[in-house]
Design a protein around this nucleic acid. Structure first.
Lengths: 364, 364
DNA sequence: TATTTCTACGCAAACGTTATCGAAGAATTT
DNA sequence: AAATTCTTCGATAACGTTTGCGTAGAAATA
């Protein structure tokens, strides 16, 4: 029909390319081919340094490519090769500094290996987790890094993918039901150390506000807490254990837990909290209630905020190596992705936590 | 060659699909076509509800598709349509709560409209900014949301893309040199309000620790600071203005700024800081130096940390509507992306900041 | 010189879509 | 009954790559 239009299109491919379909990846292999009077396959092979191509034409092609800033279209490559060179991440929320540190670790390793990352957030919702995982896999990720949401009890959505062969590495909140690499902090020791520290500082009625019991970190940290109490000859009091259904996502659930603790006949003299949000929210609520820390109640908790030092009072905390966790998890995932043959040997890396004692647990 | 292998491949496409090329997007249009004895084009049109297809076959196809959980391969769609339904984000670091709040706003709007996001971080490095923008555009993003790094002075890398027609929306740290939509906080008013508050509280020697002068937010906030002082009849003292080259990325630069202020003959009695990192680092350093806040020096700063209330002392701050900024910026970007014809009318949205006064600026 | 092996390149198919066009048969109009 | 229009579908090309295979000519061997 529009002959002149077609003519122009042939002569000015670049112009029309940018104006028409908004694709900014400059020139294509085809452009190079026509410019150098070669076939696309020759150009492709030259760029990939194939033995089939002479040194002369290789130089010709790579020269022209560099000059015109050629970069292969990753979408086309993904389609052809069936892999996208990108990995999916599922965390509860990046507003949590622990997770943003993990993500920084992930990125550092991923970028180094030519992979890019796609970050999704569950906001502690099972439904969103399923949805995100679905989105990610349909965007053709090569592998998945996931920390389960607090709501997640059924992991069928992940089992299916795992069976289909999608490389998955769990970090932080893991599951026993899938056999693959996992990277976690030493949650048992974190809970144990925190509780021991409280005991050593003279506290005896130690409460525990934590995430739902179904997620791994809750159980592991609780186990450490229990062990420390047991060693000190103190019985576990169920009244002292409070669970926040959403891991502290809502202030209300922490408020309820705290109120229940404060209305006990035998009020706790110390609280050990897990999860960043629960910890900082508890601190805020205690301050709001004008309850002196640590004089009336001591507080120690898991948190990765860089502000622990400058909180009121400065907050004793269990710090997790988030950045390192991200790095390690990504390394293990890349091992799976790049493996020539199926991997059947999996390991669980346990990274040390760090107890930092500050004013909120000062000895009375 | 391997006839039996080929036979199997035809009969068990799904199995081989998953085992061979690791693509998990279940079945393809072709699978549906062969299963229903239709052509691929018919199936494609049926799925897209084309008028060319009878209701009968439409039902047949969509039924089969649902049953077998068909989902179009987004990679193939991207390649075909020249757009990827994804938008790129460039921020300094997601560890900064302000930016993670912005990102949450971005995601909320993007997902609602079927777009996914790719987040990249500059860590305040110009080099990384250029690199990230390059990566993003070559991954065929449909649009870009960017807050410039503190190091960025030359924006040639963005000008080129903008000229080529890539939809770009700036937020937070913007530039005059590119005419497009921008979403910023009312930085002038933020600086003005903060300074007025200090003046009202009786402080007179007000220092200012801020980001490099080349980025927009620095200038705007400084203008507000200046205006407030001017109205109060106080001359601007250059000795009181300190710039942190990396916006507080390194403790050292904040430490230098603070030391210089503290060694002045006429020490400031209050400090107004910009940027989350500078603010919290200043607080930490003052505490470390055992300088009483606000008795010796008052402190107010830009920060979006949810912990301002519970810092020691609780921190007066200028809060920016991060989530809303992300939402607005994404809405404007989607307008550009989805526009039928080129857009030439651009606007700059200015969102109100919120001054929250707390103990760190209490009246003396 | 006649045959074989290299060397260096092009053809064509494929990845999963979408879109243009042509066409067979049915339904409608003249 | 003949001509036209609808309806419904399929063949084909295209997006930008990669790759197996075929092959022309040069080089090496017999």
């Amino acid at each position: 029909m529009c002959y002149i239009g077609e003519m122009l299109k042939k002569q000015l491919p670049l112009l029309f390319n940018t104006l028409a379909n908004m694709n900014f990846s400059s020139i294509t292999i085809k452009d190079i081919a026509t410019a150098l009077n070669l076939s696309v396959s020759t150009v492709s092979k030259a760029l990939r340094d194939s033995y089939e191509i002479s040194e002369n034409t290789k130089k010709l092609v790579t020269g022209y490519a560099q000059e015109h800033n050629y970069r292969p279209n990753p979408i086309a490559q993904s389609l052809k090769q069936g892999r996208s060179k990108s990995i999916g991440i599922v965390v509860s929320t990046i507003e949590n500094q622990f997770f943003s540190q993990v993500i920084n670790g992930i990125e550092s390793v991923a970028y180094e290996n030519g992979f890019n990352v796609i970050i999704t957030q569950t906001h502690e919702s099972y439904e969103l987790e399923v949805k995100n995982v679905g989105h990610l896999t349909h965007r053709s990720i090569d592998g998945l890094l996931i920390s389960l949401s607090t709501e997640t009890k059924d992991i069928a959505h992940l089992k299916t993918l795992h069976k289909q062969g999608l490389p998955i590495v769990f970090f932080d909140r893991v599951t026993d039901e899938i056999d693959t690499h996992k990277v976690i902090a030493d949650n048992f020791k974190g809970g144990y150390d925190a509780t021991c520290h409280l005991l050593d500082s003279g506290y005896k009625r130690i409460a525990h506000i934590t995430s739902p019991a179904n997620i791994s970190i809750t159980k592991e940290r609780f186990a450490g807490y229990s062990k420390a109490l047991e060693e000190a000859g103190i019985a576990i009091d169920d009244d002292y254990i409070k669970y926040c259904p959403h891991g502290g996502r809502d202030i209300g659930e922490v408020e309820n837990a705290l109120n229940e603790l404060l209305s006990l006949k035998n009020k706790p003299d110390a609280i050990f909290t897990t999860s960043d949000r629960i910890t900082t929210t508890t601190l805020m609520l205690l301050n709001r209630l004008k309850i002196k820390i640590p004089q009336e109640i001591a507080l120690i908790g898991y948190t990765n905020t860089t502000l622990a030092d400058v909180l009121n009072p400065s907050l004793s905390s269990v710090y997790q190596p988030g950045f390192e966790m991200g790095q390690k998890a990504t390394q293990k995932l890349l091992e799976l992705i790049l493996a020539k043959r199926p991997v059947y040997e999996f390991e669980t890396l346990v990274l040390p936590t760090q107890l930092v004692t500050r004013d909120s647990t000062a000895r009375q």
